[in-house]
Amino acid sequence: MATRAPVVQVEHICKDYKLGEETVHALKDISFNIDDGVFLAIAGPSGSGKSTMLNMIGCIDTPTSGKIVVDGTDVSGKTPDELADLRSRTISFVFQTFNLFPVLSAEENVEYPMLRRTDISKSERKERVSFFLNTVGLAKYAGHRPNQLSGGQRQRVAIARALATRPRIVLADEPTANLDYKTGESILSMMKAINRAFETTFVFSTHDQRVMGMADRLVRIEDGELTTLGVRAGNVWKYVKEKDVPIPTSDAEMQQLLKEDPELRRMIMEDPELRRALLDDQSVAGVAGKGGR
């Protein structure tokens, strides 16, 4: 999978900001690559800096130090206009709050980011609008305004809008946080399907287990520090920064793994989210024999 060059290279990123008198270190020396076509989750508790990380990849925030290379372009020191042009060509956003333009219909919202692209003809634009609205299953809602659509439908429009420019990378900030469980689920599997079908790179910030469960890359950030880098290889999470963790297909297999590897057991016990991701708590408590709750 990693045969192509990375879409994004993050090198020694630090981000400080002032909060009153104090300087807060939001991100501390973070480095990782995002390979082309991956479905990557940036995980971490709220306030950990994952949204900041996502904003920097999206070139709407700038690091205090360090370098970010997006699609072969070093974005440090670029003017706002250059960054805007880079965004319009290579980056798309899906927001937690959908952020559709309320005065535009679904199809106009999808068309909007293509309007400034002189390289896309009008007929091509129209074609893409209907194609992507069809992809997200909203072809018959093309003329509806956002306030006539449900939350899930709005997020689908937002995804169609994100895909319409054929970006190298789609950044999604907590895309399911404002949706109910079932809708979130279907949105996620739709994104995963799109990821597979078009090989569009997706990057999420999330603390949603299901998102992490679907990801094939995991970047875990806690208190501004990168704690875990995971690569899913088949059924196994290979941890670059920490120990490799296999992904069990059944509870029995998981328990077997935990028995064989005390190091893994410790790691899982210390990471409640990983624990939730990999097993249900009862079995862990039973196998690990420690007070997991």
């Binding site: 999206g58 709407i60 706002p80 206009d81 805007a84 042009d85 965004r87 319009s88 060509r89 980056i91 798309s92 956003f93 927001f95 709050t97 952020n99 333009f101 309320p102 909007y112 980011p113 400034r116 809008r161 420019t165």
Partner: peptide, 16 residues
């Protein structure tokens, strides 16, 4: 405010 932020995140220049 957020709407204008969205416009710019989607690649609109400040001037736009």
């Amino acid at each position: 405010y957020g709407e204008f932020g969205t416009m710019r995140a989607l690649g609109d220049r400040n001037r736009t």
